[in-house]
Design a protein around this nucleic acid. Sequence first.
DNA 1: GTCTATAAGAAGATAGAC
DNA 2: GTCTATCTTCTTATAGAC
Lengths: 199, 199
Amino acid sequence: MQNERADKPNQKVKRSHNREQPLLDAAAKLFASKGYKGTTMRDIGSEVGMLPGSMYYHFKSKQEILLAVYKQAVYSLKTRVEEVIAEQENPWRRLEVATKTHLEAIINKNDYAQVMTEIKPHKAPEIRSELTAMRNSYEGIFVDLINELPLKSDVNKKLFRLMLIGALNSVKIWFQPTDITPEDIASEFVRYLRQSSEI
Amino acid sequence: MQNERADKPNQKVKRSHNREQPLLDAAAKLFASKGYKGTTMRDIGSEVGMLPGSMYYHFKSKQEILLAVYKQAVYSLKTRVEEVIAEQENPWRRLEVATKTHLEAIINKNDYAQVMTEIKPHKAPEIRSELTAMRNSYEGIFVDLINELPLKSDVNKKLFRLMLIGALNSVKIWFQPTDITPEDIASEFVRYLRQSSEI
DNA sequence: GTCTATAAGAAGATAGAC
DNA sequence: GTCTATCTTCTTATAGAC
């Protein structure tokens, strides 16, 4: 597997292929663990063996990298959640699997999901509104799922959603894999909400 | 009000009094709004009209400032919450007023409370364990409050507490004063938990 | 596409005058 | 206690060779 194409023996493997994806992966990893401000362009470059100057061929600024990471995070998590809810009919079950999938993403090594949930838009003021719009586009899934539920008429749906999402996004702070599974947490959280709000 | 003491007319007002408290207030304000890494020593100094070099007379490093802010945040919020729960007998009511007080702190201009809930210990690795210990000391109040509750035997108390605190600390992200009051939010959150877990 | 080299500025922190 | 001046290091970003 030294060469992908025998007719170009002297060319490096993976020559002009996307170096952008590895860069974004490295950025996502570092943003997730050290924060946006706490990560330098040098950090990102050295993760993929590239010098700082070279990265500016691919992205014109650090903010643009964050934007690209966010975009990918929203796209892939949204897609994944939509897949799992499509397999369910019962509205409470749909909310539960969406919750479980969201939790799995932020708990299991999914750096992109962590960036989306942990790095708040105001950390990069110049692109703040774009980041916020992307977040809202993801949270829209939960708005829809909650609208489907058979709820008592006095339930405040917005508060319901924000309590759930707030609780979810704080899970990574304390989660220990030996304690409990994402599935257990999802079913408990949804049960709490269900038993006090279902018709 | 130009001089506090007429016998020392040439001395500046507020001469050698504590400049530390104004410095901490400025730091709390900036840490709360721009984050720890996003705030510079120069930012803090200029808030109180002091040049960067001068601050090192009062605090030997930026980390020490964060530590002092955290310490004051924990002390004052803990004291305040303990006061309000002491006035209540009913365990659910005690949890509710603690929740309300916590919410008021993070919503209403209390920069210290925001620093404690928003700046995660790992942002300052060298003092991480001290910050974590302080947080835990505060959250201990909620551990106790939840232990007092008459709960069904199958309720996971840790999950109960973390769901509540996670939801609380995320409130400041979306809260709009016209929507709803901290008191309303507290009573709703506690009601959700109560109706599905009370004996 | 990646390198070298470097600009241009900002950061935390210190030394010593006042 | 605060200022001036400065050290040292690190930052994002650019220019141009290869």
